[in-house]
Design a protein around this nucleic acid. Structure first.
Lengths: 291, 291
DNA sequence: ATGAAATGATGCCTGAAAGGTATCGTGGTC
DNA sequence: GACCACGATACCTTTCAGGCATCATTTCAT
């Protein structure tokens, strides 16, 4: 078998058509260069160069070999570079799971930030609820999640990305949309609600029952997708609690109201990732998120 | 710098995910295999494999390197093979110069024969008169000529490909087309002729003046392309001498007549090549032509 | 819990091969 | 005809690849 060094020797000679100068270009002396080329030719079984004592020319086989040799050397340069870039996280693929709600606000700017900082990282975006994100993180199908949850399992690390207020989406003809005074928590008492699912949107469900006196009789629908909820509000099926960023979606017939007595930014969006993930791109992205 | 052997070692380990079995597959023992992989990793500057004492897995960088490594190895196999094939003449490019007249008959079957016998040889076909073929052979712009000439220069070797009769092309309304008896050489005496050029179609010109009593007053046109001559015959501008193979071209209004007293196959078509040409494909094609 | 097995890494030795210096052989040049 | 240019060869030294023996660590069975 032959070596890449032999190929480099041959290419140098083929380019200079002169052993002495090629040797100088390779920072070596002429005799070992001659031998390396001979050895390569012996392996190939064919003369690649025709040496006259006066001049060196490529044979037809040599021309063909030179073409392949150049590609070979280019690739032999590229392979370690690619590996280094991927190991450093400059290159790679990052699978991101995000909730539909996070898609309204932060997802776009996050994607932009990642693409600007790490143009070598390809993003795979998958919309899924937080519970699915945790499953997929555990099984390594996604590297990063953007979701809402209070406490993370031990295998998952998180970083608070965004905290926002909770708003109430009301149909524009609803009496609450025309109050003379600021809205208060207990105004929703007895109103028909389009609630978050207790199983599929646990975070919102828990958050709401913690802050509001919600009675099961008030719940008209139980959903997990914020956008669907807003559409139902527009069709006058009830009121819905939505994070502030969802208010960016203007749907005709829907108004978003803040609570006077709940101005804290209590709805959190976290970045989630598996502590054991080896994906080097994740490290880069996480350090970006932290800044 | 790293070697192809190191790459082979890495690929084997990456495929087996087991140093011992990979070593066996490479017909070597495990310790040097470990060291080769270590050396490769040291050059790349990045861990390609993650070795636990229990199992071996690829890192993200290792996966990327593996992809490139496979291409690298495939190319390292291919380069010498290509060179060998080209040196043996199985592969290559052959520039062929041919006269328009040879194109009527033998060129098609020749091209077919070459393509069947040597599917790796690409043919470049260039139409040119014999004189141009000799020039281009001398300067290496074509490797093979198909032309008509009596004596070859010393640097050119030739092989007789085809000998054929000389026919007379006549307009179908011409008296000679309706003779009760076979045509004889002296029937053309005094007829208007469309002659071959004395300078650009020397071979035909010399051949004709050797066999026929041709007077300059009879010459109406002086050309080098047989097809043009036949078209002029069709338009009743005179008679033309053409090789038998040109009769394969049926032009309305033209009939081809043989001479009773000139039945020898005196029009020759030769393959011509430069004795110094190094193109290995030529050797193969010449040996094909000889059989 | 403890010993056996599995597996990759290390230490050491030998032989092959790479690179260097000096020199040869052969054409072309003045 | 002496000289020069240039690739090939001879010989030496050093580097490195491969093999054997062994170590260290982890898992599994008893």
């Amino acid at each position: 078998m032959y070596t890449l060094d032999q190929v480099r020797c041959f290419v140098a000679v083929a380019e200079h058509l002169h052993f002495g100068r090629a040797a100088a270009a390779l920072s070596m002396t002429q005799p070992p260069l001659s031998r390396q080329v001979q050895k390569l030719e012996r392996f190939v079984g064919v003369d690649l160069l025709e040496r006259d004592n006066r001049r060196v020319v490529l044979t037809a086989a040599g021309e063909a070999f030179l073409d392949n040799a150049r590609v070979l050397l280019a690739m032999s340069d590229r392979a370690p570079q690619d590996a280094r870039r991927i190991a450093s996280g400059q290159w790679g693929r990052l699978s991101v799971g995000f909730t539909a709600a996070s898609g309204f606000g932060i997802l776009g700017s996050l994607v932009t930030a990642i693409e600007e900082s790490f143009p070598g990282i390809d993003l795979d975006l998958h919309e899924m609820v937080t519970g699915e994100q945790l499953e997929n993180l555990a099984e390594g199908r996604i590297d990063l999640g953007l979701g809402r949850l209070d406490s993370t399992p031990p295998s998952v690390q998180s970083e608070l990305l965004l905290a926002e207020r909770l708003l109430l989406a009301v149909p524009k003809d609803h009496p609450l949309a025309h109050l003379e005074r600021p809205l208060r928590k207990d105004d929703v008492t007895g109103q028909p609600l389009i609630m978050h699912s207790a199983t599929r949107a646990t975070y919102f469900y828990d958050l709401l029952v913690r802050h509001f006196p919600i009675d099961h009789h008030m719940v008209r629908h139980s959903l997990s997708q914020v956008l669907t909820m807003i559409n139902l509000v527009a069709d006058n099926h009830g009121l819905a609690f939505v994070p502030e960023s969802a208010a960016l979606v203007s749907v005709p017939g829907v108004r978003y109201l803040a609570f006077e007595d709940l101005s804290e930014e209590i709805v959190e969006l976290k970045a989630l990732w598996n502590t054991q993930t080896k994906n080097p791109a994740l490290k880069q992205v996480v350090s970006l998120l932290r800044s």
